[in-house]
Computed example of a mutant assay.
Amino acid sequence: MILKRGLFIFLGAILMGAGIEIFLVPNGIMDGGIVGISIILSYLSDIPIGLFLFFLNIPFLFMGYKILGKTFSFSTLFGISVLSVTTYLLHSVPPFTEDVLLATVFGGITIGVGIGFVIRYGGALDGTEVLAILFNRKLVFSVGEIIMFINFFIFTVGGFVLGWNNAMYSVLAYFIAFKTIDIVIDGLDESKSATIISDHWEEIGRAIIDRLGRGVTYFHGEGAYTGDDKKIVYCVVTRLEEAKLKAIVDDIDPGAFLAVADVDEVRGGRFKKHNIH
């Protein structure tokens, strides 16, 4: 599980770095979030993008440790480190195309796939995602809406620095990346329901409560083949918490039955107030 997670985070960070340095930056196009800020600062100072990517994300990594836990923070640190090194190594590589529209489309797709891999396997490549999750605890807006609001200001600044045509192409690249992320991970702010059947149901339920801060419900069940009584653990988590939930179940009972499904809407309780500890 750890090896698979690390592999996909590594691959996702490389894809995002390639999208930035091979498609976007050579054509004067930027992305949102910390990446967009890093591109603007690099343009103004001639300092490599990778340095800004790494150091600007450090404060958010500390925030992420408190909000989303150790696994998320270390996965994010690993991904951002790989991203920073990738942008540095690819900075002198000639762009794949000098057509701005093609660079916008394929850069957005490449970045979206990369980010999707990383988020799907329990990490992030941009500190604004962590900031949005923190604000989501206090505000009624979704994570996606908060990220969009933050990026509005970043792209506005980009318009003054890179020119308004490039800023508009940047917005287009961002939307393409956002939709690609939806395809890869079925949405940034999506909830997941998990059904777990295990003889260690009580230990798994307690771990979900203690380590994820999520409520669980126990159902009574009966095995159709054996006729044995079963306890079923049911809970709802966010997409960013899904990887840690799987790790918890795998650590306690690798042979447990685990089914994860998409949840279109969650209402009631304190669901949005809970976060990984």
Rank of each mutant, 00 (worst) to 15 (best):
S38I: 03
L41K: 04
L41D: 04
S42T: 09
Y43G: 13
D46C: 10
D46S: 14
I47S: 03
P48E: 09
P48Q: 05
P48K: 10
L51M: 12
F52Y: 05
L56Y: 03
N57C: 10
I58A: 08
P59N: 00
F62L: 12
M63E: 07
Y65V: 15
G69R: 05
K70L: 11
K70T: 10
T71R: 14
F74N: 00
T76Q: 13
L77M: 10
F78H: 04
F78I: 08
I80S: 07
S81P: 08
V82D: 00
L83P: 02
S84I: 01
T86Q: 05
T86H: 06
T87E: 04
Y88I: 14
L89T: 14
H91G: 07
H91S: 14
S92W: 12
P94A: 01
F96Q: 01
F96G: 12
V100T: 15
A103V: 06
G107H: 05
G107D: 01
I109M: 02
I111H: 04
I111R: 04
V113Q: 06
G116Y: 06
G116C: 05
R120M: 13
G123V: 02
D126Q: 06
T128S: 12
T128F: 12
V130Q: 01
N136F: 11
V140S: 15
V140A: 14
F141T: 13
F141V: 13
S142V: 02
V143K: 06
G144P: 08
E145I: 11
I147A: 03
I147C: 00
F149C: 15
F149E: 15
F149S: 15
G158Y: 03
W164G: 04
N166V: 08
